[in-house]
């Protein structure tokens, strides 16, 4: 029986059908298919005047697990962390079989990469800082997002706010990651275990940043680490974040706060770059400025002067040798 469930997970509801819950009797009018994944299918539906997103799955246990996570989010942080949960129920289909579903807040927005293409690259860092803040809260509450990927992120606008839409992979810290996608999984790249730790999410977040510039993804090849670093270096738009991304990929950040700080600093630097010279002359005292000038001059001189010394030395040696040869020849004669 379970086998059939596994196979027929693609649920196809006709647009316009009405779904009524067996336990709570709420009715939903199906409007549109929003997407489907390994664990179910999400539809846009109307409940009275309200638009909601409903996730259906014939695998009742995965619905239950996700509902558990959404409930925890609500207890911990209000609704900011995920879409808010509205209803959980079963639907008895006309043919008698039963599907579990839950209704949640419908978040209308753009996929992350679409948003960045439309609104500009400068948004990447800003949205990542938002995501890092949310992840920080989640980690503090004892959870790891797990299946963090571009498809699970949506940007609502305006004001721009990054939200996550699929919480199915959320796992308690210290356990084994429940769900993952190879491209975003550090285990796949040979850069760590599949234990639910904050560093696991930060790796995936770095991959989200990379994925924005490699929408087709890429495979690990013979030397996964090298492949990854090569792609990172080749994406010029990622240059400002390359150090942060690299640290995240190698699990060097102990918390999302640290990474958030690095990216924030980078963002501030970029926007302040033009003012930098003026600012520094204003803030430093004269002597400091003089010292700076001196060191700058020295640095500037250092390489040509070294060459000069080399030429001088060579000249002297040549001249001395010539004199010596002349002396030897004179002796012979």
């Amino acid at each position: 029986m379970m086998n059939q469930q596994w196979k027929s997970q693609g649920i196809n509801l006709p647009i316009g059908s009405v779904v009524t819950g067996k336990w709570h009797n709420h009715s939903y009018l199906i409007r549109k298919k929003l997407g489907s994944g390994a664990c179910g299918t999400v539809y846009l539906a109307d409940q009275g005047n309200q638009q909601v997103a409903i996730k259906f799955s014939q695998n009742g246990s995965s619905i239950t697990t996700e509902v558990n996570v959404l409930r925890t989010f609500q207890k911990v942080q209000g609704k900011r962390l995920g879409p808010s949960l509205l209803d959980v129920d079963d639907w008895v289909q006309p043919n008698g079989s039963q599907i579990s579903f839950y209704a949640m807040e419908y978040l209308k927005g753009k996929e992350l990469s679409t948003f960045i293409q439309k609104h500009g690259h400068e948004w990447l860092g800003i949205l990542m800082v938002q995501l890092l803040k949310d992840l920080g809260d989640l980690h503090e509450a004892g959870w790891v997002f797990g299946d963090l990927k571009t498809e699970n992120l949506i940007v609502t606008f305006p004001p721009a706010r990054l939200r996550w839409i699929d919480v199915g992979g959320t796992t308690q810290i210290g356990r084994a990651i429940k769900e993952y996608t190879e491209f975003y999984d550090r285990g796949y790249w040979g850069l760590g275990s599949r234990k639910a730790e904050p560093t696991y999410d930060l790796f995936a977040l770095a991959m989200v940043m990379i994925h924005v510039y490699y929408p087709k993804r890429f495979e690990k090849g013979k030397d996964p680490e090298k492949t990854l670093m090569r792609h990172l270096q080749q994406a010029s738009s990622l240059k400002p974040y390359a150090t942060a991304i690299q640290k995240a990929l190698y699990g060097k950040y102990r918390s999302s706060k640290e990474m958030e700080q690095d990216i924030t600093n980078q963002l501030m630097n970029v926007s302040n770059n033009r003012l930098k010279d003026q600012q520094s002359s204003r803030t430093h005292s004269r002597t400091q400025r003089k010292q700076q000038k001196k060191t700058v001059q020295k640095r500037n001189n250092s390489s040509p002067s070294q060459a000069k010394y080399l030429w001088e030395g060579a000249g002297i040696i040549v001249v001395v040798c010539m004199f010596y040869i002349v002396y030897v020849i004179l002796q012979w004669i």
């Binding site: 336990w23 009742g60 246990s61 239950t64 509902v67 959980v88 079963d90 039963q98 579990s100």
Partner: peptide, 12 residues
């Protein structure tokens, strides 16, 4: 599956 959705959570 026969339990109300609220109770299933704990069992899961």
């Amino acid at each position: 599956e026969e339990l109300p959705p609220e109770k299933r959570g704990e069992v899961m």
